[in-house]
Amino acid sequence: MKRFFTAAAFFAALVAAWHWAYIARIWSPVLVPSPESVLRYLWEIARDGSLWSCTVVTMKRLLAGYFIGLLAGVPLGFLTARVQALRDTLGVMALGLQGLPSVCWVPLALLWFGQTEAAMLFVVVMGTLWSVILATETGVRNVNPIYIRAASTMGSNGVHAWVHVMLPASLPFILSGMKQGWAFAWRSLMAAEIYVTIMTGFGLGHLLHYGRELNAMEQVVAIMLIIVLIGLLADKILFSPCERFLHRRWGTEK
């Protein structure tokens, strides 16, 4: 409860300072809109349904790309960990491409796929894939070999050992790769949506982009808030419970 009040007080103070800066007219109201106008804008787009539809478009792109990246990345990570030739090739490639800011995929995606959903998907997959591969590889290579030996005396080898021993044993690493992949995918998708207009669906990035075009600062700020909120929610809903579970099981909690 005390933690909740500390947090509530902090954010209330933040909004109050913002409100004061608006009242005091330190900057032009065009550049610093009032908290009320931001709220009013949010209320409007919530009522006319565009907030919902844009969020759905964005989340669909994000989740589709993210899960493709995950489904491809985990097995590829396993393979790079187990096959020397793959570690020297795919592993090095993953390491290089993970260092490439995922925004850099956008021009290439546009030239390859045009202004299509495929371009969006491609950018998100590229954002996710490499960090998931690298994290899985690290995880698998850090599995205590004694687990594999113990499992094999209990009749677990081959695919069963991969699924029931290697995979859970490397989960702490895979989860941190999943978090990083999620962050990269989210950033690259926003960049792509701001950069490119795609007629098959308007996402949050487009709203942000049009806010700039229209000089509608309350729109820009409102959409930024939504993007931040989605990021926070994803962490709280998707990752935090998994992390808490792993910490409890492994005993890695402070």
Partner: peptide, 12 residues
């Protein structure tokens, strides 16, 4: 069946 010095129990 085998028992090891480190218990080799699965933490997950």
């Amino acid at each position: 069946m085998m028992m090891f010095q480190e218990s080799a129990l699965f933490p997950w």
